[in-house]
Computed example of a mutant assay.
Amino acid sequence: MTAPSANADKTIETIRAALAPHGLFLRGTLNFASGEAAPLLADGRPAVSVVLVGNIGGSLWQPFDAWRCSLADRGGTDPLDNWSKAVIQPIAAACGATAYFPSDPPWQPFQQWAMRAEGLKPSPLGILIHPRFGLWHGYRAALGFDIPLGDTGERGTDHPCDRCSEKPCISACPAAALAGERFDVALCRSHLRTDAGRAGCLTSGCLSRDACPAGSRYRYPPEQLRFHMSALEV
């Protein structure tokens, strides 16, 4: 595989600077091996690399909320997705990249990319857990390039769940949705329809997520938690 060039490093720094005012970060890079399945660039060629773009803690909340409040329609039916595209697509175009979003088909394997690029593993909730940020992070897009790129993120060296013996996320769930081998979405949604669920998780955020000790200082602000929970169809 060809090594990243000086121009590639300059492109990455330009993107990093353009994302910063929006509370977004370059989260990690994945260079595809020859012949490996890769997303297609805008011109139909397979991408050589992708760099993940996302938030750390509540970093995007204030820029996003200011944008949403400035619009008569509050950003439409999917405001966070619409904001992400409004911010990231021009940056991608300016640097000759192709932007991919989790909400758009063909559905790209964002979690697989993140696990390879940042060395992350899933938590019992299904959310990828980061050694430093815990469960308080997310991916808003990926940028595809026709050149290899150097590392852009903070690669995990361990899995916080492996060194957590008490597993408070499991016992904190009022719906017992984490009692089995996989997170039970149906149990979670059923609980959120109850008075206790509406007064608890639906208002202040998932109690299991909040119970996780990893990255607790990156916890989303209350208004961001309410926004994300309100997006659930319960």
Rank of each mutant, 00 (worst) to 15 (best):
P102H: 14
T203K: 13
T194G: 00
A8R: 06
F145E: 05
C95V: 15
P222I: 02
R217E: 10
A93S: 14
I127H: 13
L26A: 09
C173P: 03
A94D: 15
S230G: 00
D184T: 02
L30Y: 15
V185F: 11
P4K: 02
G215D: 03
A211N: 02
P90N: 11
P174R: 07
V51I: 11
P122Y: 09
L143D: 05
T29G: 08
L60P: 04
Q108R: 15
R226D: 01
L187G: 05
I56A: 14
W67K: 04
W113V: 03
P46N: 04
T203N: 04
P222K: 03
A177F: 11
A8W: 09
C188W: 04
T194R: 01
D104E: 14
G44W: 01
P105R: 10
G58L: 05
F133L: 13
A20K: 15
I129N: 15
N55D: 13
G144P: 05
F64T: 03
K85Q: 15
L120H: 10
G35H: 01
H228G: 00
Q111W: 08
K121T: 12
L225V: 00
L143R: 11
R198I: 00
G138N: 08
A142Q: 06
Q111K: 15
A72E: 05
C69K: 08
